[in-house]
Design a protein around this nucleic acid. Structure first.
Length: 612
DNA sequence: TTGCCTTTGAAGGCA
DNA sequence: TGCCTTCAAAGGCAA
């Protein structure tokens, strides 16, 4: 645990920033303070909690079985515990190799390429896609994995139904980023109507759904020309006419919005003539094919419920008409953030690898994996998210996140997370549990706006909104690149939101950037941490301890892959999280593991296929 | 049928 | 200006 060296983490634990921005620039800042350990500290803290829990469990396993569950432990708690346990187990199994050492594909080669006026993908984009598809394709794995994929592919509307927004999003286009994002199981091939469209009909909904090509990964099936279904050209425009014509999985809708820029004037005028201005994105809501933006969904339950409730209380003609209008107003979803994009891409893998289906557990794994990602890898997703936001802004200039807030009478009842101060956070159990935790990550955060760009220690350089955790003005104005110089090598991103150098610093040998442009001082990070950050938990030290949230999960000890290590872990956890303690896993095992990283194959090299 | 769970990030709103 | 809340995806599960 070298990250605790230097006492950089004195106040880390209580730092709000730790929670709010643990993935952001503070990391750089922490690094610069030689405290790459903020997160680590949190992990340690949680580990300590975990330790206590573990000890408790280990000391009284039989008692635990006899005793009734804790008073506070509701059924849901149990369920949650089981989820977490499952996540731990699965996660532990996953980290046998380096955490996504890098995507073999080129990142965003040309954002503008696919946005050709004619709405077709540019050769560049096509090349890009063709390059990427195979990379994302799932290797033929075990039958189990296949089955998992088969289960997961389900392009059926069930997905839509399962989504809390039972609406249909329409893919309208294959975004150059789509392969990475794996938005859809069904992908639209411009100008190539799927002949199989009516072939498959969902038994529940009766809505036709496309059969999935058997040889195509349901999660990475974006190969142009292989697939898809063309949504109704103006599907979202005619929700009142009945069911959306073409069911598409939720994931399928989330294509980025490349075609936005391809909408021609006639379409815009058409939209303008038929819909209120707020419904007509200024000139680029639809693909040239008429396929709407994926972020647009037909009136949602949220809105409807809200409107219904409100309407019941305040019924007036005027309001009704307004509501009618609003009902027809498509629901424009928020653009996905980096983590969401990451989840969309990786969920399938996790599902395939772990045969997990519960999203809560999967998300836990993904959350840890996210932290395990190298900065460069995260940067890819931040960049994607940035482009999504940009595109979203372009598509829906007037849109605000507020639009999707369900307020007033129809306000959707949101869960209260009620995180108690003593409650362990998601990382709590993990630090010493390589299965879960990811190595103390100090290098995880991709650059994000001013915060990431300058770090916490240079807040004076932040724009005002950033200081208030608001929308970054510079970021918007510069579209991520105004402040930052263009990537010198272009190895990663052309216009990273933040210092491209940070993004384009695949190696930590990169020259330190100026503080202005390179707040994420990668070079300041101690090597051991670098290894940690890049390294999956050593399989030999996989420890599955009963974490705080799984007090009495009752999971059999057999789930622990290494009881001895578990004990060791417990022993370690009993000690105060000292640097020496933390350093233990980082030296031998980590380095050795790191060395293995280059040679050992990924458990599932879903995204590690070479470009060839 | 509906909401919760679970994750991170972005952004709006309020005090 | 800091903090809180909501939403975005996803699918199982509980009420």
């Amino acid at each position: 645990m070298p990250q605790l060296n230097g006492g950089g983490g004195d106040d880390l634990g209580a730092n709000d920033e730790l929670i709010s921005f643990k993935d952001e620039g503070e990391q750089e800042e922490k690094i610069s303070e030689n405290s790459s350990a903020e997160r680590d500290l949190a992990d340690v803290k949680s580990s300590l909690v975990n330790e206590s829990e573990t000890n408790q469990n280990s000391s009284s396993d039989s008692e635990a079985e006899r005793r009734p569950p804790p008073r506070s432990e509701s059924f849901r708690d149990k369920s949650r515990e089981s989820l977490e346990e499952a996540a731990k187990r699965q996660d532990g199994g996953l980290f046998k190799g380096p955490p996504y050492p890098g995507y073999p594909f080129i990142m965003i080669p040309d954002l503008t390429g696919p946005y050709l006026p004619n709405g077709s993908l540019s050769p560049t984009a096509r090349t890009y896609l063709q390059m990427k598809w195979p990379l994302l394709d799932v290797q033929a794995g075990s039958l189990q994995s296949r089955q998992a994929l088969k289960d997961a592919r389900s392009p059926s509307p069930a997905h839509i139904v399962s989504n809390k927004v039972p609406v249909v999003q329409h893919p309208h286009h294959v975004h150059p980023l789509t392969p990475l994002i794996t938005y859809s199981n069904e992908h639209f091939t411009p100008g190539n109507p799927p002949p199989h469209l009516p072939a498959d009909v969902d038994p529940k909904t009766g809505i036709p759904r496309p059969p999935h090509p058997p040889d195509i990964s349901p999660y990475y099936p974006l190969s142009p020309g292989t697939v898809g279904q063309i949504p109704h050209p103006l599907g979202w425009l005619v929700p009142q006419q009945g069911q959306p014509v073409y069911p598409i999985t939720t994931g399928g809708f989330r294509h980025p919005y490349p075609t936005a820029l391809t909408v021609n004037a006639s379409m815009s005028s058409f939209l303008s003539s038929r819909f209120p201005p707020h419904m007509v994105p200024p000139h680029h809501s639809l693909h040239t094919t008429g396929i709407p933006h994926p972020a647009i969904v037909t009136p949602t339950v949220k809105q409807e419920s809200s409107q219904n409730d409100v309407g019941s209380l305040h019924s007036s003609k005027h309001q009704d008409s307004k509501k009618e209008e609003e009902k027809k107003k498509p629901h424009i979803k928020k653009p996905l953030n980096a983590f969401m994009l990451y989840m969309k891409e990786m969920r399938a893998k996790v599902v395939a690898e772990c045969t997990l289906k519960e999203s809560a557990a999967i998300n836990q794994i993904l959350g840890r994996r996210w932290h395990a990602l190298s900065r460069e890898e995260q940067a890819k997703y931040y960049e994607l998210a940035r482009k999504e936001r940009q595109l979203h802004m372009q598509l829906y200039p007037g849109w605000s996140a507020r639009d999707n807030y369900v307020g007033g009478y129809g306000k959707k009842k949101k869960r209260k997370r009620d995180k108690q101060p003593g409650e362990t956070n998601e990382h709590s159990e993990c630090f010493l549990n390589p299965c879960l935790s990811l190595p103390p990550i100090t290098d995880l955060s991709a650059p994000k706006k001013c915060r990431a760009r300058f770090g916490l220690d240079q807040q004076n350089n932040w724009c005002g909104p950033c200081r208030r955790k608001k929308k970054c003005v510079r970021y918007i104005q510069g579209e991520g690149s105004c402040v930052s110089p263009p990537s010198s090598d272009g190895s990663l991103l052309d216009s990273p939101p933040s210092s491209p150098n940070m993004l384009a610093s695949p190696t930590r040998d990169s020259k330190p950037q100026t503080e202005q442009t390179q707040p994420l001082s990668l070079t300041l990070k101690p090597d051991p941490l670098v290894h940690l950050s890049m390294m999956p938990p050593p399989s030999s030290s996989i420890v599955l301890t009963e974490n705080s949230t799984s007090k009495s999960s009752g999971l059999p000890a057999s789930n622990c892959q290494n009881g001895a290590l578990d004990h060791q872990s417990a022993t370690l956890q009993q000690s105060a999280p000292s640097s020496s303690l933390l350093a233990q896993p980082s030296t031998s095992s980590l380095h050795s593991h790191n060395s293995l990283a280059g040679t050992q194959p990924q458990p599932l090299s879903l995204v590690t296929k070479s470009l060839e």
